[in-house]
């Protein structure tokens, strides 16, 4: 299956081909990611959406080559014409920063607690761009200002614990952006933050992404986060991509019942108080015990005998550039709920 995305004009910057990740656990091998194909053109934004444990984080680690040592990777991660999985550690190290950068969920764990913010930015700049200390300090201050940190000169001398969660995430973004990466992977960058700060951080990411013509992968469990800020969305469930489409098309016409259920579960601003939310019953399947049929079947309201027996492939029968993996796709435009602003 080719991973070329419709709508992407230029050749893909990143192309993930048949990637699978297996982890040994006390209860047997866990197939965290199962045969995923993806492609991302330069300057585009891809949202990966799914519940905890769906494999979205492991997929991003596979792309970044940051998998745990005991994990086993199958498939190819083509980035700028090279397969990252076959690169030696030194070449990989040189890619990180100028080519590939990452922002994690918890900036407290990704920043070194005993070094000042300034030291951490300056070190990155010196290591990758060979700047001298004075230039690096100046550039670091500019970067902090660019990510919306007030009094950046002062902040350079502070330690991570002296900053709020939102400010720390801005610093982490500044460090990630410092070497002008071609691809930024943001793994739940706002999950630990307040709604107001979340909006600001997402704005910041979108702004910098456009300004730098950088490709971005935005990983989240909230469809609301990807709606206004991505070009394309891939929905993951139990290690596989179950639906993929350009963002407007996806929200206009969902084919996979899981995507629909995920959207319906978000509390709506326009529904009356005490309206029961259409929650998805049950929980994702145990990844060490794969189901023979569709993984979502036990929780799906459209499931029948076929769904329990055979696994649907990710296919695009209408050639709409929006493949889905479902035996009983939802047809027609959704009318079950409408979006409106307050």
């Amino acid at each position: 299956m080719s991973g070329v995305v419709s709508g992407a004009v230029s050749a893909p910057l990143l192309s993930v081909e048949g990637v699978a990740v297996e982890l040994p656990t006390p209860r047997g091998r866990l197939r965290a990611v199962d045969k995923v194909d993806l492609a991302l053109a330069p300057g585009r934004t891809l949202g990966i959406v799914g519940e905890s444990g769906c494999g979205k984080t492991m997929l991003s680690r596979a792309i970044l080559q940051l998998l745990p040592k005991r994990a086993r990777l199958e498939g190819r991660v083509m980035f700028g014409g090279r397969d990252l999985a076959t690169l030696d550690p030194e070449s990989l190290r040189r890619l990180r920063g100028p080519e590939l950068a990452v922002v994690f969920q918890d900036p407290m764990t990704s920043l070194n607690p005993v070094l000042t913010i300034g030291t951490q930015i300056i070190e990155t700049l010196q290591a990758h761009l060979g700047m001298d200390a004075t230039t690096a300090f100046k550039r670091g201050t500019e970067l902090l200002a660019a990510v919306g940190i007030p009094a950046p000169g002062q902040r350079m001398r502070q330690y991570p614990h002296q900053l709020s969660g939102g400010m720390r995430q801005r610093v982490a973004i500044a460090i990630a952006l410092s070497c002008e990466p071609k691809l930024l992977v943001a793994d739940e960058p706002t999950t630990a933050l307040d709604v107001t700060v979340q909006a600001q951080i997402l704005d910041l990411l979108a702004r910098e992404q456009q300004r730098r013509h950088m490709a971005m992968i935005l990983i989240t469990h909230d469809l609301g986060v990807v709606a206004g800020r991505t070009d394309e969305v891939a929905v993951m469930y139990a290690g596989r991509i179950v639906e993929r489409a350009p963002t407007p098309a996806l929200f206009a016409r969902m084919r996979m019942p899981y995507t629909e259920a995920l959207l319906a579960a978000i509390p709506k601003l326009d529904s009356a108080p005490h309206t029961a939310l259409p929650a998805i019953p049950g929980r994702p399947p145990d990844p060490t015990r794969p189901l023979p049929g569709c993984s979502f079947a036990p929780r799906c309201r459209y499931a029948d005998e076929l769904c329990g027996r055979a696994k649907p492939a990710l296919e695009d029968p209408d050639d709409a550039g929006a493949p889905y993996a479902c035996w009983h796709p939802i047809s027609g435009a959704r009318t079950s709920w409408s979006a409106s602003s307050p």
Partner: peptide, 19 residues
């Protein structure tokens, strides 16, 4: 600030800045 699950509504930018 609430992210709406609707791509036709552009997210509000320049929300009251800062924290």
């Amino acid at each position: 600030a609430i992210p709406l699950p609707d791509p036709t509504v552009k997210p509000a930018t320049n929300l009251a800045v800062g924290e």
